[in-house]
Amino acid sequence: MEAVVVKNLTKTYGKEKTVAVDNVSFSVNQGELFGLIGPDGAGKTSIFRMLTTLLLPDGGSAHVDGHDIVQDFRAIRSSVGYMPGKFSLYQDLTIEENLHFFATVFGTTIDENYHLIKDIYVQIEPFKNRRAGKLSGGMKQKLALCCALIHKPTTLFLDEPTTGVDPVSRKEFWEMLRRLREQHITILVSTPYMDEASLCDRIALIQSGKILSIDTPQNIVNTYPDRLLAIKANEMYKLLKVLEGHPGILNSYAFGEYAHATFRDAHTDTHALQVYLREHGLTGVEVKDAEVTIEDSFIKLLH
């Protein structure tokens, strides 16, 4: 059963017809946690806004829970939950007032769907009389998620919920999303952080309005075509320069404390490479096979 079906969706802006979303197609199964992964300006927000009926597409079509995003926008509006990117709640209302307000606007009560938000809400309940403006980033996020969930949506759209949030709060947020899947809510989430991709059931890598690849994170990583080496040296910048100059190099870039590199010859002799690097004045050289990540795949797709 498919909760979201997108076919050749296109969106342009302004007189110059700047293309924001370019012929995008994908579908999301019911109960799936689906990630739209890409940098700012890739078109993630435009896709979300079209699916939540806030924008009209310039081409293509899409259905959410079987409803057409143009014709049946009312039906979609009463069934989905949405958390916009810059969403900041009502700063001058307390946690409880915010939640109560959104529950009422969506024609429900907190009690009716309390089971859905219970896990999250108990964490912020001790501060329920505090105004949203005085909450920490992580707490605001939890409250926003509660507000988006309170009417028991069939599908939840979360647009960059973790942008600008520190790594600890990001981790907590993803744990909450994983738990929500048990409630059989379909979740679409967008993020510019590649490391969050592995937490989704399936992901679409997106850049400049185009989808580069759609699959499970594992499959995307498994189908990485080249042999990826992780190389370390005491002088990172020099290491990158030397690798760039290597005659057999395909691509090389910094990756945490290592540099990741691919070579034309899949069977590059790692020992010879070490010698080459030392000859070029590097110390503390270490070469090993790298564990491919989504970020490597993304870089490969962009290259």
Binding site: R77, S78, P84, F87, S88, L89, V105
Partner: peptide
């Protein structure tokens, strides 16, 4: 500005 209008639009109200 605060994005709450988007939520209100995407509501049955």
């Amino acid at each position: 500005e605060s994005g709450t209008m988007e939520i209100l639009l995407v509501s049955p109200f």
